[in-house]
Design a protein around this nucleic acid. Structure first.
Lengths: 111, 111
DNA sequence: GGTAACGTTCGACGGGTGTCAAAGTATTTG
DNA sequence: CAAATACTTTGACACCCGTCGAACGTTACC
């Protein structure tokens, strides 16, 4: 039985909280990895390669979820995370794209 | 002679720093007040109404400038601030609009 | 049931942040 | 020059945050 971990409702999403959640290297990396391809993600797979201890990763996932950026369900002994695209787009249109889009190199289209 | 206060170059703008700068109630309020109408702004006028001491306001303006969000010039004994629209749009397209746009009420266009 | 796998919680530590009061620096004005 | 104006800087305070090691649940597997 997949359990849903608690998360804020769409209406109670707070921009300051969301920005604060995104303003961290580890969390931004996690979000970008997920944003790169839509759908559900295995917690551990997304976090793979990030050089930080397991408790810290767990902490960051919690911050993301409590900010309303992600939704987490428990499936067996692994966690599955998804970005709350719809809710975020409804409340803050364009925000995810602006923040999580791969950084362009500013070069004025060389070829 | 209007002096330019030091600020990061366009190339050295850092998203994490920018998000952190925006993730504060006072600074977000300042940015929104400026974003509401384009152009140059008197520091004191923008900050008017914000219930916080002068040193704190000064601190927040500095954080915004050092993050690369604003440009400040000294004119006589007052400061003039502008949002660095061009630089920010070049590096992080859509970010300002997504963050500073007036919050919509989520209501699905009632009339 | 026992054990391993996966993730969380707890407590602690170091460093950063928002705030203010007091003192300091320019700049304009009398 | 002296006084007033507009910000800034400094120092201090309380608080929050990212990180880790250690201990704790759960779930899967033999």
């Amino acid at each position: 039985m997949p359990r849903q971990l608690p998360q804020p409702s769409r209406d109670s999403l707070d921009l300051i909280t969301i920005l604060a959640a995104l303003a961290d290297p580890v969390r931004l990396t996690l979000m970008r990895a997920m944003y790169a391809r839509p759908g559900a993600h295995d917690c551990a797979v997304v976090a793979d390669g990030i050089e930080v201890g397991a408790p810290t990763i767990s902490h960051h996932y919690r911050v993301l979820r409590e900010a309303g950026l992600t939704s987490t369900t428990v499936e067996g002994r692994r966690r599955v995370v998804t970005i709350r695209h719809e809710d975020l787009e409804a409340r803050f249109p364009g925000l995810l794209a602006a923040v999580l889009a791969p950084e362009l190199d500013d070069q004025p289209a060389r070829a």
